[in-house]
Write a protein that binds this DNA or RNA. Sequence first.
DNA 1: TCACTAATGCAACATTGTAGCATTTCAGCG
DNA 2: CGCTGAAATGCTACAATGTTGCATTAGTGA
Lengths: 150, 150
Amino acid sequence: MPAPTLPSEQSAAALIAACGGRITRTRLAVLGILRDSAHSLSHDDIAAQLLALDVHHDRVTLYRTLDWLVEQGLAHRVSGPDRAWRFNSGRDNAGAHAHFHCDRCGHIVCLESIRPDESLALPAGYRPERAELVFHGTCPDCGRRRAEDA
Amino acid sequence: MPAPTLPSEQSAAALIAACGGRITRTRLAVLGILRDSAHSLSHDDIAAQLLALDVHHDRVTLYRTLDWLVEQGLAHRVSGPDRAWRFNSGRDNAGAHAHFHCDRCGHIVCLESIRPDESLALPAGYRPERAELVFHGTCPDCGRRRAEDA
DNA sequence: TCACTAATGCAACATTGTAGCATTTCAGCG
DNA sequence: CGCTGAAATGCTACAATGTTGCATTAGTGA
Ligand SMILES: [Mn+2]
Ligand SMILES: [Mn+2]
Ligand SMILES: [Zn+2]
Ligand SMILES: [Zn+2]
């Protein structure tokens, strides 16, 4: 019998097809790259990986591919410190989880387990609909590396 | 006797001088504009106000002036949704207070009374140093305007 | 008033992203 | 399979935001 397929087990091709989109080499490669990465990737990071994989593409196509993935809920976007977006696989539900930004290596990772506290009392009149929470500090990798250096 | 002067009562000129900087028309005007505004201002907003005040200036000078004010702790920066910085008067201590971003009018305001919860338990290995908290939703002005429309 | 140097203005450049439009390629169909 | 129409791509040009280098101007203290 076919085991029930968790979303995380679905192939990139199946995920793309399920959205009613065409399966193209750029979409396949980009979604694969995002799903394989432990941290958020910038447009530039992804372009570099595509180059390494010999997946020819145009700058604009990559922007459009990323937009499409976000629209479809196959990826989500986090604003980086350098006014460039970072991308992660998976849907975010508009800021449903917090993110961690390492000031040493610059990596941004999703903290799926932490959701911003929506119940905070704001001053009168403010109607919050969602909250973005971004921690800054040192990530586990950089902490370990620092300990080894010492 | 001279009443003790609160920082908020100091003139822009005195604040600038206290930092050891020269008092120039651009610095005076920009700091004044920031201190008079109830919400964050983009580079472009400030340029428009300078124009209205007939304070001639160069684009680059304004960028440098804003950088300097932030360096000196006379202003702080918040990243907007459109990858353009917004500026507020006053020191922020690296994310010491939360901000509210109105999705209707685009205004960003400081919520001085709300500080991100630093005590949240992060996954093992993460060393947070500060947290940024940004609420999105409808601001009091837009809520009121909407109620009047109905 | 003078001299020193911080601050400015200008031109050129960098980065990140968008818009329009002709061309290619995917997916469904006979 | 080979066609065909629409979706996706590639290219060029453009826009927004910010930075760098360097010559000139103008605050400041003497
Ligand atoms: Mn995330
Ligand atoms: Mn603030
Ligand atoms: Zn790190
Ligand atoms: Zn508003």
